[in-house]
């Protein structure tokens, strides 16, 4: 078959529901989404959706059917949690909360974006800050603080470097470290599978 024809043939027929994932959604309390009548209020008012491919209603609809693509797609990470949809939903679905829950499930299943993973492991875990404020690169923040009569660094791990260990201990005990390790493992496995597929082709 020539490439010319092949590009017009699409075979993405939905072959049923992934019941494990669907159950996971239900366990997370996502069944309130069953109230959805597909009116489109959430998508229509979404400021992120006006600029990106993110479609709130579609994410909810896919989650309802247990469609794993809702976890693997970048969509749910494009929500800016502005709560417009949450406020306007005529069915009283806490849409934004649902999206956050979907993100949690996505990470559990190993669907985490590289920048998020790197932020969690390389910055948050190492420095104890999600957005570090020390070092030369952040000089302007320190200046700003000083202009208000504050010490240049906040009373966090920045001024108590010995507390980084405690933060790391905390992250371990709440299971965050394990979550990240698991995500990395699942992500790696998935990448290998993809590679094999490519090779077969």
């Amino acid at each position: 078959m020539s490439d010319n024809v092949e590009k017009y043939i699409k075979r993405n027929v939905n072959k049923g529901i992934n019941s494990r994932i669907a159950q996971k959604f239900v366990d997370a309390g996502l069944e309130v989404m069953r109230s959805c009548i597909n009116c489109g209020t959430c998508t229509g008012g979404c400021p992120s959706g006006r600029r990106t491919a993110y479609r709130t209603r579609s994410a909810i609809r896919r989650a309802l059917t247990g469609d794993e693509s809702v976890l693997s797609d970048i969509d749910i990470w494009l929500c800016s949690t502005c709560y417009y949809c949450y406020e306007r939903c005529p069915r009283n679905i806490p849409v934004t909360d649902m999206i956050i829950k979907l993100r949690n499930i996505a990470v559990e299943e190993g669907y985490i974006l590289d920048p998020h993973f790197s932020l969690a492991n390389d910055i948050f875990y190492v420095t104890g800050h999600g957005v570090p404020a020390n070092g030369e690169a952040n000089k302007k923040w320190q200046d700003l603080r000083e202009s208000y009569g504050l010490p240049p660094l906040p009373p966090t791990v920045h001024t108590h470097p010995e507390a980084v260990k405690e933060v790391q201990e905390l992250l371990k005990s709440v299971g965050f470290t394990e979550l990240m390790e698991n995500a990395a493992k699942l992500k790696g496995e998935r990448a290998k599978k993809e590679e094999k597929k490519e090779e077969v082709k």
Binding site: C39, G40, G44, R55
Partner: peptide
């Protein structure tokens, strides 16, 4: 097929703007 998310107005024009998602097309 769409519920309306917002009715707005541009200051420079006297026309109203209606925002929503055409749910059949999946388009805003």
């Amino acid at each position: 097929k769409s519920n309306i998310s917002a009715i707005l107005k541009n200051d420079s024009s006297d026309e109203l703007l209606i925002r929503g998602e055409d749910v059949i097309e999946g388009r805003l």
